[in-house]
Amino acid sequence: CHLTISNDYPGSVGVFKADLLSLLSRGRFGVVRECKENATGKIFMAKIIHYEGENKQTVLQEYEILKALHHDKIMSLHEAYVTPRYLVLISENCLGKEMLYSLIDRFRYSEDDVVGYILQILQGLDYLHSRHIVHLDIKPDNVIVTYLNVIKLVDFGSAHFFNPVVPKPLGHRVGTPEYMSPEMMKGDPIGPPADIWGLGVLIYIMLSGRSPFASLEPVEQENRIKSAQFDLTKCYPNASQNAALFLKRVLCMFPATRPTVKECHANPWLQDNYLMKLRRQTLTFTTTRLKEFLVHHQRKRSESLTKHRVLLRSYSNVSTQPGPPSVTTSGKQ
């Protein structure tokens, strides 16, 4: 299959031609596929998003956000093309694995391994929040660990700009219910604390092999999130007290009382001094429960893909029409 896209207007980067490779994921709005650029032979990720008139601005917001981001902890945008029916984002190919799959590669992992990932995620969030951007879908699927053990935050389909002076509600739900913060569930004003909450859910999963708020009943899950009801005794018995105290802070029901990124960095549990690091390295967990969680997680993802299967036209020899002059392609980083 081939992909040929162009924006034939002043300031564009011309025509992008590539061979489409493996399907990486499929969601409500489109698909993500590996692609090999014909001109250079480089491998990229192509996110192909179909849109209609009513959701065009929502779809284009992902492009507007990505083109402004340049950080080593965040997936970088290579080029973007807007056509009358599709937004095509050509991004760096983040070679590696989703974070939890990276952990289960080993028989045991330590609390220090968990902290190492958290600190990198916090670096990415610090960059986003300093630019008044919230990700709003921090979850295992959207944190890639490269083969150099570097974290990359991906999928900015739920991301929004926020007002740091007067936070505002989004007016609609975004993200994944299991990882939404209480204020997202309630439709309250949204800001950086929502991402801190998502990070807290990730940490709980890594320290327990379980989801803190999951329930077979969506209403029950929503109630648990809104009231921040989770059970710390489900964490591994040897998880440290410092880790438990940190979880209590980041999974607080009230966004104003959750720590900022900088306050997280100052937390005793995340300190990089020799004794704290040594202590974390001695606290190790088997991957059995995490593997069980991932089996269940993958089953839910498969069900979601079936439910939201997107009908896209054949990619074979696709040549799209120029986009409107008001939307330009992104430059290379």
Rank of each mutant, 00 (worst) to 15 (best):
F29E: 08
K332H: 10
A159M: 03
N223H: 13
L251E: 02
E54H: 11
I190F: 00
I196W: 03
E220M: 10
F161L: 13
L245H: 12
S12N: 06
H265R: 15
F29L: 10
Y179P: 02
F230N: 02
S211P: 05
H265S: 06
N7P: 05
R313P: 04
F156H: 10
D105E: 15
R313Q: 11
S211L: 11
T282Y: 07
E52Q: 07
G200N: 09
A194S: 15
L23A: 14
A244R: 02
G53K: 15
G187P: 05
E79D: 04
T306W: 08
S12G: 11
L87H: 03
H132R: 04
S314T: 12
V13A: 09
H50P: 01
R249L: 15
Y127M: 12
N142R: 03
T83G: 01
S208Y: 03
Y51P: 00
D113E: 11
K277T: 07
Y109K: 10
L312F: 07
V150T: 11
H172G: 06
C1N: 08
S316A: 11
D231C: 10
L247K: 02
I144C: 07
P193D: 09
H172S: 11
D272H: 06
R309W: 07
H297P: 01
D126H: 14
Q271S: 11
A256R: 12
L69Q: 04
S130D: 12
D112Y: 12
N7Y: 09
L283D: 02
V31G: 00
N223R: 12
M184W: 04
E263D: 14
M99D: 05
F44Q: 07
L20W: 02
P218E: 08
I144F: 07
E34L: 14
S227N: 14
I121A: 01
E92I: 07
F44N: 04
I133K: 01
T58G: 05
L270C: 06
H2E: 03
P84L: 09
E303W: 06
V115D: 01
Q298I: 06
L69V: 09
G157D: 03
L95Y: 08
S110N: 04
D105W: 01
C252Y: 05
V59D: 11
L60N: 02
T58K: 14
L20I: 13
S76M: 14
S319V: 12
V327I: 15
L136D: 00
R33L: 05
K332W: 06
L122D: 11
K97I: 04
L270T: 03
D155R: 03
E52L: 00
E222V: 09
Y86V: 03
T286W: 04
R106T: 11
V310S: 05
H308Q: 08
R33Q: 06
Q221M: 15
P140Y: 02
P324N: 13
E64W: 09
L270N: 13
L103M: 13
H129R: 08
K42S: 12
R309C: 10
A18S: 15
L312A: 03
I144E: 00
H70T: 08
K186I: 05
Y117M: 10
